[in-house]
């Protein structure tokens, strides 16, 4: 049989099918705690798929940042806001039709893409071989991802740092900002006092995210 997939392709397809199942569960689940735990499972499955796709550096980052930090800040937000999702009140027909239409257009677009895993796809003809050759000639460190990140695409990391810095400032201003004082007089005081330390911990988690991201990138 010519189209019999090898073990590698089979494992990737199996993991992707599991991922689609988890996604369906996330859509259907109404308890927000369940949704957060499912999204943690989703991120770990995604990290496994990344390992199967030979993207080991990305898998490490996804497992630590996607499954770790994201889940922690989501849980912190649930603690601050309450964990129930209310029953559905709006119609799902229009979003469903829109999503399916977008999906149909995208699937039509995949018909021109090269097959999965073939070595002569256009993506492997441009700069990719150059990087690999540099590593072979010992002009770059053996880990090509690190080398490309540091030697060729340093401005990406600079931009990324700017985004993370801006987001960190935004989180700090939103959670400990000056208008909390004005809202505290108007709102229930006991809840605000209770929220204060956990708001700090949420922003600490966000800061942890920035530093973890910095080291992994």
């Amino acid at each position: 049989m010519t189209e019999a997939p090898n073990a590698e392709t089979f494992v990737i397809s199996l993991l992707l099918t599991l991922l689609a199942g988890i996604t369906l569960a996330i859509i259907r689940q109404r308890n927000m705690f369940g949704v957060v735990i499912l999204s943690g499972i989703y991120s770990f499955l995604m990290a496994s798929i990344m390992i199967a796709l030979d993207a080991v550096d990305v898998a490490m980052t996804e497992a630590s940042v996607g499954a770790g930090i994201s889940t922690v800040i989501l849980l912190a937000t649930l603690y601050l806001t309450g964990s129930m999702e209310y029953p559905q009140r709006r119609s799902v027909i229009i979003p469903l039709c829109l999503s399916l239409a977008v999906g149909a257009i995208l699937i039509w677009g995949t018909s021109g893409l090269p097959k999965f895993g073939v070595a002569d796809a256009p993506i492997h003809k441009h700069v990719g071989p150059t990087y690999i050759q540099y590593s072979k000639d010992h002009k770059m460190p053996p880990n090509m991802v690190t080398a490309v990140l540091a030697d060729f695409r340093g401005y990406d990391t600079l931009g990324e740092t700017a985004v993370v810095f801006t987001a960190g400032i935004g989180v700090l201003l939103l959670l400990q900002g000056g208008w909390r004082v004005s809202s505290a007089g108007r709102k229930r005081d006991d809840e605000d006092d209770e929220n204060e330390p956990s708001a700090r911990s949420a922003s600490d988690a966000a800061n942890g995210g920035t530093s973890a991201g910095g080291t992994s990138a």
Binding site: L53, D54, A55, G66, S70, L74, T77, V145, V171
Partner: peptide, 29 residues
């Protein structure tokens, strides 16, 4: 070897993704 360039781009995207998620959740709070 797999092509290293998409891996580099996605490393950046993951970190930016969690930063925007944190900012969005702070807005929700």
């Amino acid at each position: 070897y797999a092509n290293p360039l998409p891996h580099v781009l996605m490393l950046t995207a993951i970190v930016v993704g969690v930063a925007t998620l944190a900012l969005g959740l702070a807005l929700v709070v």
